[in-house]
């Protein structure tokens, strides 16, 4: 049984057809990555799944009582609102200090409780957003360009954190990214999107698919191989990943 099943989804924004006939199903515990160029409708697909944009055609079925966690690309928070991290984690439901500390630790944002949300760096905000999503004990975690603005080691360590999370909680992950080489190695399945689904499959299948090459060129092939090499040597992992800026 799939957690969500998207059938023939089309979405129009401002009169422009952004998604056209998209089919997608996510099974429990899967890590699925959506890649695609700018304007290919990646973020719109996630927003359609949470219900923020209406479908012009098609259906989105959720498993009954599905718990969703959503990590947006950025917040629309206005600087006129004073908001500490712990206030933010109390929305929409207050949580106990213990729960809060656990979620922050798990997301790698431990100790940020008293910081103002508006004053966090991009990486810190991403981890706080992840912590907030974890508080709802999600069965499906949606991540929108979660590593935008992070350098490569930081992004790689963020993805490893996601992988660990999936292994521990069994939550399925659906993420959107343009950083192909880092993302792909951690994914069970890659979907290449450009308004419609161009190709889909295991990372190595997609990387060699002609549709994918047409969208991204062959330039990223080398980078993909490089990362996979790193990934194969699991004992080297942490040392590589913790080369913080």
């Amino acid at each position: 049984m799939s957690l969500i099943r998207v059938r023939g989804l089309s979405v129009s924004l401002g009169g422009r057809r952004v998604l056209d006939g998209v089919d997608l199903a996510i099974a429990p515990g899967e890590i699925v990555t959506i890649v695609g160029p700018n304007g290919s409708g990646k973020s719109t697909l996630l927003r359609a799944i949470i219900g923020a944009v209406p479908a012009a055609a098609g259906t989105i079925e959720r498993q009954g009582g599905l718990r969703l966690g959503y990590v947006p690309q950025k917040l629309a928070l206005d600087a006129s609102m004073p908001l500490k991290v712990r206030h933010f984690l109390d929305l929409p439901r207050p949580v106990s200090p213990g729960e809060r500390a656990r979620a922050l630790d798990e997301a790698g944002a431990g100790g940020l409780e008293e910081r103002q949300l508006a004053a966090l760096s991009g990486g810190q905000l991403q981890r706080v957003l992840l912590a907030r999503a974890l508080l709802g004990r999600p069965q499906l975690l949606l991540l929108d360009e979660a590593t935008q603005g992070l350098d490569q080691p930081a992004a790689a360590s963020f993805y490893r954190r996601i992988e660990t999370l999936r292994n521990r909680t069994g939550a399925a992950i659906l993420m959107v990214s343009h950083e192909l080489h880092v993302v792909m190695s951690a994914s069970d399945r890659v979907i290449c999107l450009n308004g419609h689904v161009c190709c889909a499959g295991k990372p190595e299948q997609v990387a060699s698919a002609p549709e994918y090459r047409a969208l991204f060129g062959t330039g990223t092939g080398g980078a993909l191989a490089l990362y996979r090499h790193e990934h194969d040597h699991a004992h080297d992992h942490d040392r590589h990943g913790e080369q913080a800026p």
């Binding site: 927003r47 949470i50 219900g51 923020a52 969703l68 966690g69 959503y70 947006p72 917040l75 629309a76 928070l77 206005d78 609102m81 908001l83 933010f88 109390d90 929305l91 929409p92 439901r93 207050p94 907030r132 709802g136 949606l142």
Partner: peptide, 19 residues
């Protein structure tokens, strides 16, 4: 209060939380 606040922080997050 909390529903109004989360909607003011980010509407997509509010929707994802079922508001």
């Amino acid at each position: 209060w909390r529903a109004l606040l989360l909607s003011a922080v980010d509407e997509d997050l509010a929707i994802a939380s079922g508001l």
